[in-house]
Amino acid sequence: MPHQSTQRFSNRVGDYSRARPDYPTAVFDWLHDLGALSDNSQVADMGSGTGISTLPLLTHAAKVYAVEPNDAMRQSAETNLAGHIGFISINGTAEATTLPDQCVDLIVAGQAFHWFDPAPTRQEWQRILKPTGQVVLMWNDRDIHSTAFLLGYEAMLQTHGTDYREVNHTQIDEQRVAQFYGHPPRCQRFPNKQVFDLDGMLARLRSSSYTPAPDQLGFAPMMDAARALFEQHEQHGQIEFLYQTVVYCGSLCSN
Score class of each variant (00 low, 15 high):
residue 2 P to A: 11
residue 4 Q to F: 10
residue 5 S to W: 09
residue 5 S to N: 09
residue 6 T to H: 14
residue 7 Q to I: 14
residue 9 F to G: 00
residue 10 S to R: 15
residue 10 S to F: 06
residue 14 G to V: 11
residue 17 S to Y: 00
residue 18 R to T: 08
residue 20 R to N: 03
residue 21 P to Q: 08
residue 21 P to L: 10
residue 24 P to L: 11
residue 24 P to G: 09
residue 25 T to G: 12
residue 28 F to M: 04
residue 29 D to S: 14
residue 30 W to F: 07
residue 31 L to R: 00
residue 32 H to F: 04
residue 33 D to C: 04
residue 34 L to C: 11
residue 36 A to S: 13
residue 39 D to L: 10
residue 40 N to R: 15
residue 41 S to G: 08
residue 41 S to P: 04
residue 41 S to H: 03
residue 42 Q to S: 14
residue 43 V to Y: 02
residue 45 D to T: 05
residue 45 D to M: 03
residue 47 G to A: 04
residue 50 T to L: 08
residue 50 T to N: 04
residue 52 I to F: 00
residue 53 S to D: 04
residue 56 P to Y: 03
residue 57 L to T: 02
residue 57 L to A: 07
residue 61 A to G: 08
residue 61 A to S: 15
residue 62 A to V: 01
residue 62 A to K: 15
residue 64 V to W: 00
residue 67 V to Y: 01
residue 68 E to G: 03
residue 69 P to C: 12
residue 72 A to V: 10
residue 82 A to C: 11
residue 83 G to E: 08
residue 84 H to M: 14
residue 88 I to D: 05
residue 89 S to F: 08
residue 89 S to L: 05
residue 89 S to M: 07
residue 92 G to R: 11
residue 95 E to M: 05
residue 102 Q to K: 15
residue 102 Q to T: 13
residue 102 Q to M: 10
residue 105 D to W: 03
residue 108 V to I: 13
residue 109 A to C: 10
residue 110 G to F: 01
residue 111 Q to Y: 01
residue 113 F to T: 03
residue 114 H to D: 10
residue 115 W to H: 06
residue 116 F to G: 01
residue 117 D to H: 12
residue 120 P to L: 05
residue 120 P to Q: 09
residue 121 T to K: 03
residue 122 R to F: 01
residue 123 Q to A: 15
residue 127 R to K: 13
residue 136 V to D: 03
residue 136 V to C: 14
residue 136 V to H: 02
residue 136 V to L: 09
residue 137 L to K: 00
residue 137 L to G: 02
residue 142 R to A: 09
residue 145 H to N: 13
residue 147 T to V: 04
residue 147 T to F: 06
residue 148 A to M: 10
residue 149 F to W: 11
residue 150 L to T: 01
residue 150 L to C: 07
residue 157 L to S: 01
residue 158 Q to D: 13
residue 159 T to C: 10
residue 160 H to C: 09
residue 160 H to D: 03
residue 161 G to C: 09
residue 163 D to E: 12
residue 163 D to V: 12
residue 167 V to D: 02
residue 168 N to K: 12
residue 169 H to T: 09
residue 169 H to I: 08
residue 176 R to D: 08
residue 176 R to Y: 05
residue 177 V to T: 06
residue 177 V to D: 03
residue 179 Q to F: 00
residue 180 F to A: 06
residue 181 Y to A: 02
residue 188 Q to M: 10
residue 189 R to A: 10
residue 190 F to D: 03
residue 191 P to Y: 12
residue 194 Q to E: 14
residue 194 Q to N: 13
residue 197 D to I: 06
residue 201 M to Q: 12
residue 201 M to W: 06
residue 202 L to I: 11
residue 202 L to K: 07
residue 203 A to F: 04
residue 204 R to K: 14
residue 205 L to D: 00
residue 209 S to I: 05
residue 209 S to W: 01
residue 212 P to A: 11
residue 213 A to G: 12
residue 213 A to E: 13
residue 218 G to S: 07
residue 220 A to K: 13
residue 222 M to Q: 05
residue 225 A to Q: 06
residue 225 A to D: 11
residue 226 A to V: 05
residue 226 A to R: 00
residue 228 A to C: 08
residue 229 L to G: 07
residue 232 Q to R: 15
residue 234 E to P: 02
residue 237 G to M: 07
residue 239 I to C: 07
residue 240 E to K: 07
residue 251 S to H: 14
residue 253 C to F: 07
